[in-house]
Amino acid sequence: MKFDDLARLNGARQERRASATITDLASGEISLVSEETVPEGPLGAGIADAMRSGKATSVEIDNRILFINVYLPPPRIVVIGAVHISQALARLAPVAGYDLTIIDPRTAFATEERFGDVDVIAEWPEDVLRERPFDSYTAVAALTHDPKIDDFPLSQALKAGCFYVGALGSRKTHAKRADRLKDMGHSEAEIARISAPIGLDIGAANPAEIALATLADIVRSLRRRDLLTQG
């Protein structure tokens, strides 16, 4: 690999764009493609497969063995609501290798006192997402219970094809939320992607356990995402 290719690859990774390198293992020749420049044909199909599954692979084309390595953006979690569950989730997420950002316009909740050096943004999701939109490598967990704060980011998460969309609240609360999302133009199939009540069913009984159940739910969605229809 040449230095310029490495710098471009790292740049794409920082900008959260999926990339792949294709190495001819006999000659050492390397080329770099990003998700927008996947070529047509059998090589392109191999690259697209690798990008979907996140797994590197080798393909044989015209008697040449080509090694395809993929670089997907690191998964990140965006939490809506600087609540008690978020405090625990902010501590668990880095252990599992996830970046985490918390958005909550309520300045009484989004304090340094409560969150230390966690990336907490005390602004409306509408404003934050203009600058930092969701992508398919983002997990969104809406935890405020407040439609004014939760509904917009949930809708955006469904539109962006986030690999995980979860929302806190009882089945009754979620039924009302589903009605509102329907009014916002979402289909039943889209709304069915929302994990609600949030988290794997492990009988979580307190905020820390709900955070753990949510993180496990997120990991499951990421690792099994190739079993889902791509949004």
Binding site: L6, A7, N10, R13, P73, P74
Partner: peptide, 12 residues
């Protein structure tokens, strides 16, 4: 990606 533990960022 910015982590000092990332081999490709370190290589660069």
């Amino acid at each position: 990606v910015t982590s000092s533990l990332d081999p490709l960022v370190t290589a660069q």
